[in-house]
């Protein structure tokens, strides 16, 4: 369940960002998860509510955007799309592939506010 550890990282990043912007509430968190990343988006969703509980992003909406996998086929000598981990080259069917994209997991952006308490302009 390394998804729990990853979601703890999400919480840390979200809370830091909210604090930097003086926000006390986060209403949405958007993640970009590569199709070849070592994580299951569904498992992340499962962890989200539990990990965000009692924090600035409690009750926030989680949106997960999938980034397609890409790589370089050494046999075709060109950049190709890779559907999933372990899949062959869509051109030649070979496996001499080097993954170049779709392996990352990122917090893309978050929605802040509206504030639940009034703030003084001073």
């Amino acid at each position: 369940m390394h998804e729990m550890s990853l979601m703890e990282s999400v919480r840390e990043i979200v809370e830091q960002t909210a604090s930097q912007h003086g926000a006390r509430r986060v209403t949405a968190v958007r993640l970009q998860i590569g199709a070849l990343a070592t994580v299951e988006p569904e498992a992340l969703r499962f962890c989200f509510d539990v990990v965000m509980q009692d924090g600035v992003a409690a009750g926030a909406r989680l949106e997960i955007e999938t980034v397609p996998g890409s790589g370089w086929c050494w046999d075709c000598g060109e950049a190709v799309a890779i559907a999933e981990g372990g899949a062959g080259c869509p051109g030649c069917g070979g496996y001499r592939l080097e993954v170049t994209g779709g392996g990352d997991m990122r917090v893309k952006d978050i929605d802040l506010g509206p504030e639940q308490e009034s703030s003084t302009c001073a």
């Binding site: 949405a28 893309k108 978050i110 929605d111 802040l112 506010g113 509206p114 009034s118 302009c121």
Partner: peptide, 18 residues
């Protein structure tokens, strides 16, 4: 005393494993 009534999106772009 001002209360923001709209949400704003803040770019983060941080890797989970950073």
């Amino acid at each position: 005393v001002l209360r923001p009534t709209t949400t704003r999106t803040v770019s983060v772009e941080q890797d989970l494993l950073a």
